[in-house]
Structure formats: C-alpha cells, structure tokens
C-alpha cells in the first residue's frame, strides 16, 4: 500500500508539472494582460514599468522558470489584479465551492441511490418509467436553464428560497460554512440542487443498471435460497456489489463538480472559485488562472487516490492483490 501511494505521488508531480507548462503557455498565448490592467492612456514608460514589476518583460521561458522556482517554495505567484498571493485568493474562495459541490454530491447519493434501486427492482413499472423520464430530463436540460427555472419557481413565484449569494455563514469545527446558520442553508439549497440534478440522474442510472446486472446473478438466487429477507439482499448483497462502480464514478464526478461549478456559481452569484476564475480569465490574471488549475488538478489527483483506496476496501479481490 505504501509503495502504491508513493508511486501515485510521483505520478502526481509529473502531472502537475506538465499541466503547469501547458496552462502557463496557454494563458500567455491568449493575450497581454497589460492591455487590460493599464488605463488606455498609459504612457510607454508606465507600461514598461508595470511590465517590469510584474515580470512580463522577460521571455516566456524565463517567466516560467521564475514561476517554477517560486512554485517549488509554495508561492504560485501574485495576482495582477488583487496584488495578493494567488493561492490565498483561491483558498479564500474554495470553501464556498467545496461546500456547494459536497452538498450536490450528497444529494446525488441520497436521492440517486434509493431512486435507482427502486427503479431497478421494479423494472418496466410506472415508477420505473417516471424515474427514468425524470432522469433523462435531469441529464439533457441545460444546467443554466434548470437554474433559471429553479429561481423562477422557488424564488420569484413561490418566494420560498433566496436566489443569490451565500447568505450568512458560521463556523463549525473551525470551518466557515453555510451549514452553521439557517440563512446559510436556505441560500445553499437552490444552487446545490441545480448543481446536483445531472449527478442525481447519473447515480440513478448507474444504480439501476447495477441492480439489473446483479439481480439475475446466482449469488442473489442463492441468498434467496438461504432465506435472507429481500431487504438484506438489496441493501447488503446488491448494494455492496454495485457500490464499486458508483464510488468510482462519483469520485471522478466530484472533481468535475468543483471544476464545473462555474455555471451554477454564476447563475446564483455564489462566491466560489468558479466565479473567481471566470473573472480572472476576463482580465487575464495569469497567476490566479494558473494557480486555480493547479489546485483543481491536485484535487482531482487526491480524489482519485481516495477512490482507489475506497475501491480496495470495498472489493476484497483487489485488496488481496494490492502490493
């Protein structure tokens, strides 16, 4: 297991290095931040001075070299716009996004798995058809449109829930979170649902397919022949088998929930990294963009590692093969 983790960490370093090169070059190619940062009537002297202070007067390779040296000591550059370390700007905003993504994930699991089980066990019934139609809508209607509809119905028409911002936060166990206050929770509900709808649909489908593949297997029939209750057969024998693919997909999806929270954060003015990154791309705030992507990649890698570990806990066949 240790060797496995070390190997994965080394791989992670390589991935991060390659990503940083690509992103750095990519952002460099998009445009010159000076155009945006300086007022239109700035003199050549002012221009040169700002360029020098930001290090933009150097060739790309030198700029990257500097960035890399700094990055190795934990400094991912200073935002051109906020004039603060880019990593700390991101870390300020990250909890809001994580909270949103986490809530969406929990919704996807606690709604998706039971509905998927229900639908899979009653294949072809009215319940199954209804759930499946719903999940097709969850998949295919555009995320922003779903968000607009949620706001229209629950904020504008019914007036039940707020539609913008994060509301009041409090601290639980030293973490600043919306879960600490009722106002915070109210603000979280709509964006979390918006972000989770497609994932709920995905989990429903995965679960349903898993149930249909597992139920006809001999070991289920043997479990019935041993006189186990249907409840135990479904919640232990079926679920434990289908949890393996579900966990894998959910792990990958958690990364994408964070990365693609952008749309939801924009619709609901949620002060997370998604909104930050959109703003930063607009003004070509390179250090923030690069730092953001590196943070997201790091999270992807970490999540994958956790998924692999969970995998081996769930599946004894993999566990005994682990080095």
């Amino acid at each position: 297991m240790t060797a496995f983790v070390i190997r994965r960490l080394l791989q992670a370093m390589v991935v991060l290095f390659v990503t940083s090169v690509i992103v750095f070059t990519g952002v460099y190619a998009i445009g010159d931040p000076l155009e945006i940062l300086l007022p239109a009537d700035a003199t050549m002297a002012e221009r040169a001075q700002v360029a020098r202070s930001l290090g933009l007067d150097q060739p790309l390779i030198v700029q990257y070299g500097r960035f890399l040296m700094n990055a190795l000591s934990g400094n991912l550059g200073t935002s051109f716009v906020y004039n603060r370390p880019s990593i700390s700007i991101i870390l300020d905003r990250l909890p809001a996004t994580l909270e949103l993504a986490f809530s969406a994930l929990v919704l996807a699991i606690i709604i998706g798995i039971p509905l998927g089980l229900w639908s899979g066990l009653r294949r072809g019934s009215a319940v199954d058809e209804t759930i499946m139609t719903g999940s097709i809508l969850g998949f295919s209607l555009p995320n922003f449109w779903q968000g607009m509809m949620l706001i229209m119905i629950f904020s504008v028409y019914l007036g039940w829930l707020p539609s913008t911002g994060r509301g009041q936060t409090g601290t639980i166990l030293g973490i600043e979170t919306s879960f600490a206050t009722w106002d915070g929770i109210r603000h979280l509900i709509l964006p979390a649902i918006n972000l989770s709808l497609a994932k709920i649909s995905l989990v429903i489908r995965l679960t349903r397919t898993g149930v249909q593949e597992t139920m006809p297997l001999d070991f289920i029939k043997f479990a019935r022949a041993r006189g186990l209750s249907s409840r135990r057969i479904v919640t232990v024998h079926v679920l434990k088998n289908i949890l393996i693919p579900i966990i894998t997909v959910i792990g990958v999806e958690f990364g994408s929930l964070i990365a693609f929270a952008v749309v939801t954060e924009t619709i609901f003015s949620w002060p997370g990294v998604g909104k930050l990154i959109i703003d930063s791309i607009k003004v070509l705030d390179r250090p923030v963009v690069v730092a953001y992507i590196l943070v997201v990649v790091t999270m992807f890698i970490t999540i994958n590692l956790i998924v692999d570990i969970l995998y081996s806990i769930l599946d004894p066949r993999i566990r005994s093969k682990a080095p």
Binding site: D218, F222, R224, G227, N241
Partner: peptide, 23 residues
C-alpha cells in the same frame, strides 16, 4: 422464506457464482 435455507436448503451448480464476491 422461513423454510428456505432453514428446513429446505439448496446447493447450486457453479460454486464460483453462488457466493457473493464482496462478502
């Protein structure tokens, strides 16, 4: 259900398939 596995037991053909691999 109360008879199955209790008063009447069954053994299946393929022992590779009758036990749940994750339990």
């Amino acid at each position: 259900r109360s008879l199955r596995g209790n008063r009447i037991a069954m053994i299946f053909q393929d022992p590779m398939m009758t036990l749940n691999p994750v339990l």
